[in-house]
Structure formats: C-alpha cells, structure tokens
Design a protein around this nucleic acid. Structure first.
Lengths: 251, 251
DNA sequence: CAAAAATGTGACGGTTTGTAACAACCGGGA
DNA sequence: TCCCGGTTGTTACAAACCGTCACATTTTTG
C-alpha cells in the first residue's frame, strides 16, 4: 500500500499550466517519492508554535499529538497510526506538538507544494477532504468521551478504538498498546492510577487479559463495547444492540 | 458582515459547463441566492442519522450541535453563530443533531451542488478549507478544556469564547448568552448546578456582573483570561503573559 | 394569574484524584 | 549471565471536587 509514482515534482514556478503533470492518484502516492525519516521514541517531529513548513505521512510506528497548558497539564488530542496524515492545516504555525511513541518512520512533504498538488488534483482533493472529515468525527467522539463518560467507559472506548484500528482482520483480539499509561491518561482525561485501576477491574471481569505490558487480549469484545457506551453494540459478539431513537431532549 | 452579492444562482441543470458561470467569490455569496428559512427556538434543523442532503449557512441566531448517548446523556459539541457553516462533511448521514437555540435564520444549499461548486471554484476551496481548520482548532481547544480544566476554568473559557466571538468590536463587555444553563453544562461537561455556582462565584469575585439572565458584563477580562488557563493572557487588560517554553515531557 | 420551566443555593455523598509505598520490568555493564 | 539502577506500573488510603438530591426563587408560558 504505498510508494509508487516518484516522478518529477513540479518546482515553484509551474502552477496552473496544464502540461499534464504527474498528478498522483492517491495521497499515498503523493508521499511515495519522498525519503523516509526515522524518529526514535520520545523525539518530537515538531513543536506547538513551530512554523508549519511540512505535511507528514506516517509510514510506520505511532505518534502522539498533544498540547500543554501553562502549568504543565498535558492533553493528548490524538494518536497517529500508519497511513495517517500529520500537520494538515492552513495555519502558519502548528497547533500542537507531535512526538514519536515508538520508533516511527515518516515521509515529509513541503507545505506549499502539498497545497499546490491538492489544488491541482481533483482526485486528491476529495481524499484529503475525507481525511479531514474523519479527523473531525474522531474529535467529536473524543469530546463525547471527555465530557460525559466515566473512567471505565473511557478506558473501554479507548481499547475498543485501538482494537478496531488494528483489527482490520477480524477475530485477532491481541492488541498492542505501544503508549504508556501516562499517554493513555492524558488522552482520556484521567490519571495513570485511575487507568491502572480500571484496567485491573476489566481484567478481573474477564473482559480483557494482559498479555505483556504493552499488549493484551480482548476476551469479550461485546462486553467491552457495552461498557464503552455509545451503543456501538452492533458488533458480532452478542450484546444487545439497542438502536432506539432517543427521546427528544427538553429545550 | 453578511449578505452582499445575491447574483443569479445557477439552477440545477448547469453544472460543469464552463460557460463562465457566476462563480461566487466567497462562500457567503454562494448561499446568497438561497431563500432564508426560519427556525423557532428548540426546533431541529436535522437529526443525527438523517441523510445529509444539505449544507447550511447561519444567517441569524444561534444553534446548538449535539449528540446523545444511549442512556440520555447529552454532549453539545459546539454552538453555531451567524456566518458559520453547518453540515459540511462527506458522510451520507449527519453525525449530530442541530437545534435552534433562539429564533434562527438559515440558508440551505443542496449537498451535491455545494460540492460541485467547491470543486469548481479555486476561490471557494481555500475558504472552505479554512473553515474546516478553524473548526478543527476549536474542537482541539474543547478537548483540552474537557480533559484537564476545572469547572471554574471551563466556565471562564466559555465566557471568554463568547465574549470574543461577539466582541469583534472592542470594549463592549456586555455579552449575550442565548443558551440555557443546561446547554452550557452539556457543552462544558458539567452539571447545571456547578455552572450556576461557578458563575455566582465569578460574580462575587467581581469578574463578571449579571445583566439579565441571558446577558452579563465582563468586568475583568484579563482576570477571566487568567482563570481560563490557556495562558491567553496576551490581552490588553493586564495579567502577566507567561510564554515560557514548557519542559519536555518524559517519554 | 396560575402553572410550568428554568435558575440559584445548600447539604451530602460518590467518583476520581493525589500521595505514597511497593512491585514489576527494562537496559546496561561487569 | 547475573546484578543493579531507573523507569513504569500497581495498589491502598485520605482528600477534593463535582454530582446528586432537595427545595426556594425567579422567569416564562398559556
């Protein structure tokens, strides 16, 4: 799923001249020609406030994206997996810091040229648009989680999210958790202790089983979905799927 | 800040024929030709799960956008003000419900035609892109608020947000709060009681002064910014602005 | 004007936090 | 290979913040 189409990149001058340029068919192929850069665990790709020069594609590894309040409180707004884009925004400064969780490989694309390519290609545009919409949907899910879910629901939701992101292949319930408990806590708006306690409880309930420190087995996916709220119980693991239209909320 | 440029709206048939069409220069003018629809307070523009047929522009009034968990918990993910767009996403279903807070006027645009217009116009595209990026930035701010801020910081942040949204004109510290306490609570991830108590406390501190039930005066904008966290203290109302680079976070 | 809804305020309790001590794990170096 | 220090993860307990419940008060609606 990747690098094809290196081709000649149009330099600054060429913009609107319809000389039938390479015109990559997919976002991946856009990055395909770029060299791969490696980031060691804990190293930053860029910092909040840095001038936003580049857009990145995650090739391998996991990144955390976060902001820090003036007194040190950290909020992780998302984790990035292979295939995700990083730094897509029109601001001239990055709004957040991006750090490698584990050893990570990225491809870099210069921001202005990225915009040009997007602007030029009616193929790429909807793909980018779709990416942004997915990101927005994820952000809304996260707002729901942070605003109203209990600690247990948050942890369950998180595990479910990871399980789904990895388990494109079904019935492979061993999920890797490359991030630390602190990462999870700062993503879920909890403390490490609460995360720990909650995972212990889920283990005692036989919903999950620890595999190693950064991997576990999901034993009851349906139960997990139930605990996560969202009524995402439309999985194939039992668990009653209630899709009842909700009562109208009072003004 | 609004309806200029009515111009002839291109009717259904005309789509890709380059007959030098109106080609609106701004998103506003795109909606300019559409009729204005009015929604009474509490009425829904659309529901979560509805087929996403239209994109809307808010002409007047305020909307709340929310999702509801299976057991009734509500999370308001945002409030929309005049000039904002509603329903911009590529999903075939709306991901949230949109309701009028007060009497609201909207213009509607058919989804497919909206996409066509956007695709065709190199002027409109960056505007839409900017809208999405702003929305994304707002969502991230909200995640920070929900994940790590105290009740007082949340309320202060909210008031500050409203004050800035309205107060394009400086030094006009009377801000209207059209939404109910329950709306505020469901937006801030708190209960109505906590919102009430916190606003009382802010009143006692002379930071705000109630005007009517849905309006108040911000007496100390700088203090409010300070209480809101974010170190947004780069306002012009005193309050030390600390912009110290944060210590690097351990792994 | 009466009834319903929204808001404000207090006491109390629960979930989560913070502190701390301890256990488990990882990575080097001898 | 084993040992050892530092990091990470777990558990216990007291405290804090916010939610729950209850009710008074104000505002809105019919």
């Amino acid at each position: 799923m990747l690098s094809q189409a290196t081709m000649s990149q149009p330099h600054g001058a060429v913009r609107r001249f319809a000389t039938v340029p390479p015109c990559p068919a997919s976002l991946k192929s856009l990055f395909g020609g770029q060299p791969v850069e490696t980031f060691e665990p804990g190293t930053a790709v860029f910092w909040e406030g840095d001038e936003a020069r580049h857009v990145f594609e995650v090739v391998e590894g996991v990144l955390r994206v976060f902001r820090i309040l003036s007194d040190g409180r950290r909020v992780i707004t998302g984790f990035l997996y292979p295939g995700d884009l990083l730094g897509v925004s029109l601001k001239d400064q990055y709004l957040y810091t991006a750090e490698a969780v584990n050893r990570t490989k990225l491809r870099r694309y210069e921001h202005g040229r990225f915009q040009d390519e997007i602007n030029r290609s009616p193929e790429l545009r909807p793909q980018l648009f779709a990416c942004l919409c997915d990101e927005m949907a994820a952000a809304q899910d996260q707002m729901v989680l942070l605003a109203r879910k209990s600690a247990e629901e948050r942890v369950a939701s998180f595990l479910l999210l990871i399980a789904r992101r990895l388990g494109g292949d079904v019935r492979q319930p061993v999920i890797e958790i490359p991030m630390t408990r602190l990462d999870m806590a700062d993503y879920l708006g909890l403390t490490i202790e609460t995360v720990s306690r909650t995972m212990t409880r889920l283990t005692n309930c036989r919903v999950i089983a620890p595999s190693s420190r950064h991997a576990l087995v999901v034993r009851k996916l349906g139960k997990l979905a139930l605990l996560a709220g969202e009524s995402d119980a439309d999985d194939k693991d039992g668990a009653g799927g209630r899709a009842i239209q909700q009562a109208v909320w009072p003004n």
